[in-house]
Design a protein around this nucleic acid. Structure first.
Lengths: 126, 126
DNA sequence: CTTTACCTTTACGTTCGCGTCAACATCAAA
DNA sequence: TTTGATGTTGACGCGAACGTAAAGGTAAAG
């Protein structure tokens, strides 16, 4: 049985189990440039940072981001070059995302409200 | 120019313009059984109720529902038959949806928080 | 040494949500 | 009457996000 590879690293199926996705999905995200684990031979070895990154990816997915969007946002986090124009552009993109998320949340709230109301109507009929 | 067809009905491109989708999209939703406007000859004629229904569909889409899910939810609204077992099943599905929406909202809040934080970091660098 | 349980790559298949012609009808304005 | 503008029904196409074999490597356990 899996003897704990090395205390702070995970196999692909460790992460798959933990986050309830398939290994295929995780490999696909790697193909798409979203994550880049180390290799031990040919096998993938995920660090805690990789694990956190995957969590971010999956939360992005949960809020409806396309994978390309997620990759872009993750790239923004990279503190690579800090030219002023770049930073301003990044800021703009980031704010646009935030605005979209606020609207989406409003839509969710409205939907929850309607469904709650509907539940109440049904409950009344019982 | 379009002289107002009849006060409370709309053409497909009226709705397309109003909701910023293409006519193709609206027809597609009809193919999928999400909406069923009347016909004036072969042309579609949307009532206010149809318009409201389309709004519901699009908000469902905005919160990430699949079209099949939206159809199911719209079907639940139909007050057709009221067998007790049916009502209970409907109630369950409805509550499950609500729970999922709450989780999704939490994910959105967390993402907003992180992006806000990130914006602040960038702003500090400027 | 063989089995079991993983891992790998390659590659074709599938579902969803439309986009994009094509070919045709209708109706009002010029 | 010709010309748009708008409507219609197919039907094929496409990108996204994986699913699903197929074929094989590796390492520990029996």
């Amino acid at each position: 049985m899996g003897v704990a590879l090395q205390n702070d690293s995970f196999t692909i199926s460790d992460l798959a189990r933990e986050f309830d996705v398939t290994s295929r999905t995780i490999r696909f995200y790697e193909d798409e440039g979203l994550i880049s684990p180390e290799r031990r031979g040919s096998a993938r070895l995920y660090s805690r940072a990789d694990r956190a990154r995957l969590a971010w990816i999956l939360r992005g997915r949960a809020v409806g981001f396309a994978l390309a969007d997620i990759r872009e946002l993750l790239d923004l986090y990279e503190p690579g070059r800090a030219r002023r124009g770049q930073l301003e552009a990044t800021l703009e993109k980031c704010r646009a995302r935030i605005n979209a998320l606020h609207e989406q949340r409003d839509a969710i709230d409205a939907t929850i409200a309607e469904l709650d109301q509907f539940c109440a109507t049904i409950t009344a009929k019982l």
